[in-house]
Design a protein around this nucleic acid. Sequence first.
DNA 1: ACAAAAGTGTTGAGAGTACACCCATGC
DNA 2: GCATGGGTGTACTCTCAACACTTTTGT
Lengths: 233, 233
Amino acid sequence: MRVAQAPKLDHSLAVTVDVVLFTIWEKKLAVLLVRRIKDPFSGVWALPGGFVRKDESVDEAALRELQEETSVSRVYLEQLYTFGDPDRDPRGRIITVSYYALINWENFQLRAKADTSEAKWFPVQKLPKPAFDHREIIRYALERLQHKVNYTTICFQLLPKEFTLSELQQAYEIILHQKLDKRNFRKKMIQLHILKDTGGMKTDGGPQRPAKLYSFTDVRVVKLQEKGIIVPF
Amino acid sequence: MRVAQAPKLDHSLAVTVDVVLFTIWEKKLAVLLVRRIKDPFSGVWALPGGFVRKDESVDEAALRELQEETSVSRVYLEQLYTFGDPDRDPRGRIITVSYYALINWENFQLRAKADTSEAKWFPVQKLPKPAFDHREIIRYALERLQHKVNYTTICFQLLPKEFTLSELQQAYEIILHQKLDKRNFRKKMIQLHILKDTGGMKTDGGPQRPAKLYSFTDVRVVKLQEKGIIVPF
DNA sequence: ACAAAAGTGTTGAGAGTACACCCATGC
DNA sequence: GCATGGGTGTACTCTCAACACTTTTGT
């Protein structure tokens, strides 16, 4: 029931999407930034993103921009917040819908792209000064991620299919930026019934006891309880 | 540092804001809807909202639309989610940034407005079929509100300056749609140290013992703890 | 044999939950 | 004096938090 009836005044604005892509890289939580080569911010690091096209949904635009930059196919992608200050972009009135995404470092590959000279991971603790209001967007994304690991299984998106309990704990410690008690962590994870013992063992060549490998019982990100899996805020 | 350099292609889209305004009205949680009079949805109930102008932020647009409809000055207003499906609006490609807002029924007054014939409160349990994807937006807003009353002081925005503990409990019960234990509720509220005994008493003319009047120690919406003020989900 | 990470239980404190009766007032 | 909502305390349960030693492997 599409009807040809445009609004009387011209209300159109430019809308972009920006994606905060997280991974765990060298035992740090890292964000992908790309170096811009065209506009006034040429040379400056910024979040991957671009304009929303007329024929695609905003979600589709975010996914497309992510795929143009990286070659990932299956990622967890969630809308964050819409930033709409008239002065946020010096090129003009541009509203941006921000997203954040999580990938497992191991099945990831950067893709060469025409309008970005370079893409690079930066630990969230050591970001360069980014373009626009992108620092604020990253801060917002980090906050959301830290909250969400507490009551959902979102953390699993950062891990490979099979992993040890120590690796899982390390992921939580990296995201939350704090040490956790090993016994309490394992007890909690096991009683949640979200882990499956694969039967396999991981021997990483080091001189230590091999660790059991686990996988998740549910591929989706599921909500657990409000109380917090790990840390009460 | 505004620079005159528009994007090469025309990427502009129409952007609207839509506001889910909640209040507690006749012991029910209610949402304000307005009857549209212009477009293909003429006669249909919809959320108050309108186009974002070029010189205002998205937040300002939401506040402006709210003030055009009601004459409230101080409201709690929070961005919800951005809906950007290409087919969500039959008039064309329109992206909407949704907000929700809370007001106290008592200091509220509807305002007559040119392009809406009528505005009316509807209990969230008995909504008419609204225009566009507004039912989804309302569902989303309700979910957010129900979560947020649990770990913030957001509920206070629905109450007058001074109120009794029973009124506060009733507000929680209405929002969460469940009965709460009187003694546990009062114990919890008092131990949070967010209430101030005003010294006043409320005698509402009924044949019962007068109730103590309380106010909040902090006007802002503050975050308490993750664990849930009242009900763990 | 030793270094390094894996794996494993118990106890005490605090918070949550369930539950019933007296009080002050208007009519 | 009675009907109506206001106001109050305790006991049980469960979850959270703190804490240290044995096991298995590679070198």
